[in-house]
């Protein structure tokens, strides 16, 4: 079992998301994340899907997706150079003053070029806004959980695009 990535071009129509996600539930495929949004063309959407699967199952998933009328193109991103980011919000609450300081330190360490920021603050709470790779977000969440008692995490799922000449996944 490995984590795999697929990009999917689909018709931007009612029910297509339900059809694609329905495949994963109907066939018991282990869906990790699924994001979707429109592309430069109004009638085409692009999905980024991550799934845990062995080789044979993953082949089958790609074939099943390809067989759908509404699916225009399937791209296996697993081994391609890509750029990938996921937006994450983490609200850390019930902070003492020293905790607040530590939160800012963490943000500072994780931040590279503005991709981790504290964008909101209250008497005893701060809000992280991160645009990191999924793995880096996992690490940040793990750290926050180990350091603070009360955190609330909202994640958007990863979005990926094929690289031009550099990559980041």
């Amino acid at each position: 079992m490995k984590n795999r990535w697929i990009a999917l071009y689909v018709e931007n129509q009612v029910g297509v998301l339900a059809k694609v996600s329905g495949l994963f539930s109907a066939k018991s495929y282990n869906l990790q994340t699924l994001t979707v949004g429109t592309t430069e063309r109004d009638d085409v959407s692009r999905m980024t899907i991550s799934v845990m699967a062995d080789d044979a199952t993953f082949e089958q998933i790609k074939k099943q997706l390809n067989a759908m009328v509404e699916v225009i193109k399937v791209i296996d991103l697993t081994t391609l150079p890509i750029h990938m980011k996921e937006i994450l919000y983490a609200k850390v609450s019930a902070l003492k003053p020293e905790g607040k300081t530590e939160a800012f330190q963490i943000a500072q360490v994780f931040n590279q070029g503005g991709n981790v920021k504290i964008v909101d603050i209250g008497e005893d709470s701060v809000l992280f806004e991160c645009t990191l790779t999924e793995r880096k977000n996992n690490e940040l969440v793990a750290l926050l959980k180990s350091r603070f008692k009360k955190i609330e995490v909202t994640r958007g799922g990863a979005v990926a695009v094929e690289s031009i000449s550099s990559s980041c996944r």
């Binding site: 009612v14 029910g15 339900a18 495949l23």
Partner: peptide
């Protein structure tokens, strides 16, 4: 009905 039959049709659609 389109939703109910999604996994047992080759294609299904409501004319909107």
């Amino acid at each position: 009905i389109v939703g109910m039959t999604r996994s047992i049709t080759k294609y299904g659609v409501t004319v909107r």
